[in-house]
Amino acid sequence: MELLRNLTLILLATTIIGHYSTRIGIPAVIGQLLVGVVIGPAMLGWINPTHVLESYAELGVIILMFIAGLESDLQLLKRYLKPSVLVALMGVLIPVVGTYLVGMFYHLGVVESLFISVIFAATSVSISVEVLKEMNALNSREGTTILGAAVVDDVLAVVILSVLVSTTGTAVGDSAAASSNLVLTTIEQIVYFAAIYFVVRWLAPYMAKIGDRLMIPMGQTLMAIILCFGMAYIAELVGLSDVVGAFFAGIAISQTSAKSTVDRHIEPIGYALFIPVFFVSIGLNMDFNGLGKQLGFIVVLTVVAVLTKLIGAGSGAKLAGFSWVSSTAVGAGMVSRGEMALIIAQIGYAAKLMSPVRYSAIVAAIIVATLIAPFLLRVTMDRAHKGEIDRSKVRPTE
């Protein structure tokens, strides 16, 4: 019964807030994130995070990233592979250095400072995907680069996290076993990415044909969901985020004849229930208890987290030949930390790589940075779009 009450409250609140957010020109996702803060432990306390809600939220982000892959242009992703790699590399390097220095400034110690830097090196592109979809910019040059960079970013964050945990030896048995596990995980991830070609080239089209022949409603959509969940599950098995698997499952289905049918069926499934729960769940993690003494640390960490990602990823785009305006938009698209950073923070907390007090402050900084990200992306993408229109008007007269 509690689940039904919670879902009713979440869907009612996000529907109302989403409507009025869009009406006044604010990304709807901002309203949904704030709903979680307001009705969660941070303020009213009407809903607390539960295992069931976390499961719904996990399905929400998987479906969201599957939709992003489904609506992405594979040729554009290939075309912007080099910019994506540069954006990801710079978008990891600069935040790692910046947040490490913040940790050292607050006398946290080398290991804890390193782990905090890994947390804020990660990018959660699901928030940016939602804003890009609202702006019809998912397949723009900036949007495609953000999507590609997010996948590379995720791999880099997992590798850095694995190295850190294995070298500290706090979450694993001994150093030799940890090093062995790291090598095995790396090999598994290489095999996983190699297998994606097989999925796109043969498996997805074959599953689409089977779905078309099934004598049940929405056969193609069901086969697509099976592929999505399967690839997400295997991605987790090899140490990647499940959203990576879901994204590439969407890419695979987008290359089949089932694309339009699946796209038409999957969006109502996601946006009617699971995706709103995902965005609200991020806000539910906010808790103001005991944060008063950590306020300065939270503010500094949030500012550094936003600026280092904006500058780092933006400089990567600039090195790849983007204009300053477009580079800033790409950097803004990588600012959001969301669920990826929260997951890494939880891993570090369980491995005793940070104190409980710092953990709460870090979660608060992650959520505040995530709340800021959609505003930045909306503003910078508007400027980039306006710049493209202006250039197209000038070009014929030159």
Rank of each mutant, 00 (worst) to 15 (best):
E71S: 02
V111N: 07
H107E: 14
A122L: 03
M104H: 14
G31K: 10
I282R: 03
V262L: 13
V158N: 01
G283V: 07
A272F: 05
G103W: 00
S254F: 00
I347P: 01
E142R: 01
G348D: 00
V280T: 07
G60L: 00
F322P: 01
S360M: 03
G31Y: 04
A369C: 13
G18L: 06
Y233S: 06
G60C: 10
T370R: 01
K293D: 15
L108I: 00
V37M: 08
G245W: 05
G25E: 15
E398Y: 13
G312V: 07
I266R: 10
L108A: 03
V61S: 13
Q32A: 14
M381W: 06
E71A: 02
L74I: 07
M381A: 11
L222Y: 12
V96Q: 01
R378N: 13
G312Q: 04
G321Q: 12
L11K: 03
L108Y: 06
V163E: 12
G98Y: 02
A249T: 02
I67H: 01
A384D: 14
L376M: 14
S175P: 05
A313T: 02
L9I: 15
I187E: 13
A149V: 15
D212R: 08
I225W: 01
L147Q: 01
I190G: 11
M381G: 07
I17H: 05
E236F: 10
I119C: 07
N285W: 02
P396A: 13
D174E: 12
I344V: 09
E267R: 10
R395T: 15
L59M: 15
P27M: 11
A350M: 02
T221V: 14
V238W: 04
S166I: 07
I253M: 11
A341R: 02
I347Y: 00
N289I: 09
L34Y: 06
G60A: 13
V87Y: 09
G250I: 08
V92M: 06
A384N: 12
I253K: 08
T221F: 11
K309A: 01
I160C: 02
L9Y: 06
P83Q: 08
I234E: 07
I311C: 07
M218G: 09
L93Q: 06
Y349D: 00
V262E: 04
V87H: 08
E267P: 03
S140P: 10
I234P: 01
V118C: 09
Y56V: 14
A384I: 12
M207E: 03
A88W: 07
K386R: 15
L101A: 02
S180R: 08
L132N: 04
V303C: 14
I94M: 14
F193N: 10
S124M: 09
V330E: 00
V131F: 13
L273Y: 10
S21R: 04
G91L: 03
E130D: 13
M231E: 10
V163Q: 11
S72E: 00
V29Y: 05
A42T: 03
F120L: 04
L114G: 00
Y197K: 15
I94C: 10
G169T: 04
L77F: 00
G60R: 08
A13N: 00
I343N: 03
L222F: 12
G109A: 06
S117V: 05
Q294N: 08
S392T: 12
V158H: 01
A178V: 05
Q189K: 13
K82N: 12
H19Y: 05
A195N: 04
S128Q: 04
M104W: 06
G36V: 04
D153K: 00
S281C: 07
